[in-house]
Amino acid sequence: MSITQIGQGSYEIQDVSVAATAAIGGPKEGQGPLGSYFDEIWPSETHKGESFEEAERALTEDTMELVVKKANISWEDIDLVMGGDLLDQLVSTNFSARRHQRPLLGLFSACAVFTQGLGLAATMLSDKGPRSVLVTAVSHHMAAERQFRFPIELGYQRTPTAAWTATAAGAVVLVAGARHPVGIEAVTFGRVVDFGSKNPNDMGSAMAPAALDTIQRHCAATATTLQDYDAVYTGDLGVIGIKLLTLLGGERGLNIDERVRDCGQSLYHLVEQDVHNGGSGPGCSASVFSGYLYRRLQVGQWHRLLFVATGALFSPTTYQQGESIPCIAHAVSLTHREPGGTTL
């Protein structure tokens, strides 16, 4: 069990593996191309809870219950819970901890919080810290709309660059030791990158430079190129963000090819479901990983995945005051190991 700093904010991790994952989504997410990878699909956006905020909390509570069950352990075996959401004062994550009564680290880096949690958990687990950590992230479309944009029934036209906050939650139980087929091999924590974007309805453009920065730093630290991975998934760049990532990467001599995909782009049928640029929200990358991406690694269809969730760190206040949008991206690379064997 060990951890090595291989660059500023980059760590090589040994013997940390994924015991189980769980993902629950809303009806729209269930109708998307990855719908069958969710463990559970809610029949309506407000399936549980009296308010949107309560619904979001119920979503994360249910997902956490489910992942503990799937890991075949009890809550007492979880040493630490880490998680985040988009709502002010992290209410979903914090309030849901009333129920599970585990030590809690509430995290915020907007839609990048899931890889922040995976990375932080991995560094602690690989250094004789906690033995098992539950990492979770959640978002609810209507709760986010209410906080960040417009009231639900207030009519307005979405711009083509707008993202659709996903109603979804993902949760992972990470454990010390290489007991399970999917392990974390390296993490890179992101720097804040702000290239002056101010449009909250175009977060893909704002976040692409942050994603590129973290990808480049991760590759440099781990001495890999993108071509060493079977797949690279960014967080919520969407169609426009991926396009700009490709262009900006090209300018810097980085070959962003078709193996680079995006969780927000993958979660929905973009045109048929009328989500414009694609999905967003902490629950987007968390549920896409916990459902689809993890499954690909688990069955050995992929052997190596680079997972880079991205977050736009603005608030309605900073936007109204005319500030640009600082962004961050955290990277985690994962491998599939053969049972009992070593990392490929």
Partner: peptide
Amino acid sequence: MHQEDSDQAKAYQQLVKSNQPKKPIVKNV
């Protein structure tokens, strides 16, 4: 100079601008 005001940022905003998807203005109107 702050990063968000740098030449790099300005060049990037140009890139963003030239890659903005068109709003369907005729249809909207």
